[in-house]
């Protein structure tokens, strides 16, 4: 759990959080979502790339990943390794029920001005200390006027424009019969309440998920649904969908396979007082089997 953790932005994470329009997609890909018995492992690839699930850009750091077991305990990542294009890790699925594996990140980013000079909060690069604490941006010449924490914004800052970001990215793995404990809503940010369980999706049955913001059904959430393996067919077959008035997303699956689901919502209810906007995203990779 890395909530309330100011984003230490790797280039990859920044790409996803800072510009939702960016095509770079952050994904986790489990070797399977369904195992028989409690002696099995899943092995997971994690990366950031345009095409799903084709790693050709940046790995996702396994350090960001948390494992939630069905009984509420925190599980363990084993054998983490980071390659050029993707990282991998294993998780021993040693308890029956549905596990959640992934990342939960939150942060505040934005801009402000000090003496007419624009500064950044969060984002890429190394922080250069607070304004006035030394010559900001003096070395290198790159846009280095950057601080890492909200608390580093000086009192005389003007034009403070901050955005709070919450981003979750999960996979779900089930040993034996599926359970729903890992879907218990925290009531904070964008979450899903499964109507169809993510680990029992079938290509000839509609998938249904209720999206919640702060625990309440969220209408009008934009959701992108993309099947993997575009390389082996003509069309990407991505769907741009929206949740209904009841917060429910209805998904038809054009093919069986692994799907990347990415939902985003924004409002003006940040928990950080100095921020004016809150951007939330929920991402999941789900497996849709053939009937």
């Amino acid at each position: 759990m890395r909530r309330n953790h100011i984003l230490i932005a790797s280039a990859a994470v920044a790409a996803v959080l800072a510009s939702p329009a960016s095509a770079h997609r952050q994904w986790l890909l489990p070797s399977t979502t369904t195992v028989a018995g409690t002696d099995e492992y899943v092995t997971v690839d994690a990366a950031v790339s345009n095409d799903l699930f084709y790693p050709d850009h940046f790995p996702m750091s396994p350090d960001q990943v948390t494992v939630w077991a069905p009984d509420g305990s925190v599980g363990k990542l084993e054998n983490p390794a980071t390659g050029r294009y993707r990282s991998t890790f294993d998780v021993k699925i040693d308890k029956p029920g549905t596990w959640k594996i992934g990342t939960q990140r939150s942060g505040v980013m934005g801009t402000f001005k000090v003496n007419g000079e624009e500064w950044r909060l969060g984002g890429r690069g190394r922080p250069m200390g607070a304004p006035g604490a030394g010559g900001p941006g003096a070395q290198g010449g790159a846009p280095a006027r950057r601080v890492e924490n909200v608390a580093d914004i000086p009192a005389n800052a003007t034009d403070v424009k901050l955005v709070e970001t919450l981003a979750a990215n999960y996979i779900y793995v089930t040993a034996d019969a599926p359970t729903k404990t890992v879907f218990t809503a925290t009531g904070k940010g964008l979450e899903i309440e499964p109507i169809t369980h993510p680990d029992e999706l079938v290509s000839n049955e509609e998938g249904q998920f209720r999206f919640l913001v702060d625990g309440k059904p969220a209408a009008g959430v934009k959701v992108t649904v993309v099947p993997g393996s575009k390389k082996y067919r003509e069309a990407e077959q991505a769907q741009e969908l929206t949740t209904g008035a009841d917060g429910v997303l209805h998904v038809k699956w054009p093919v069986a396979g692994m799907y990347w689901i990415n939902a985003s919502a924004a409002d003006a209810k940040p928990s950080e007082k100095r921020a004016s906007e809150r951007r939330m995203s929920y991402t999941a990779t789900v497996e849709v089997v053939a009937p």
């Binding site: 369904t34 028989a36 018995g37 029992e200």
Partner: peptide, 22 residues
Amino acid sequence: GRESGTKWLADLRTWWRKGGRS
């Protein structure tokens, strides 16, 4: 042993969902 015969029961994917998993 390490990979017992039950491991691949989930490959009977329709039955597994219909109740095999329980």
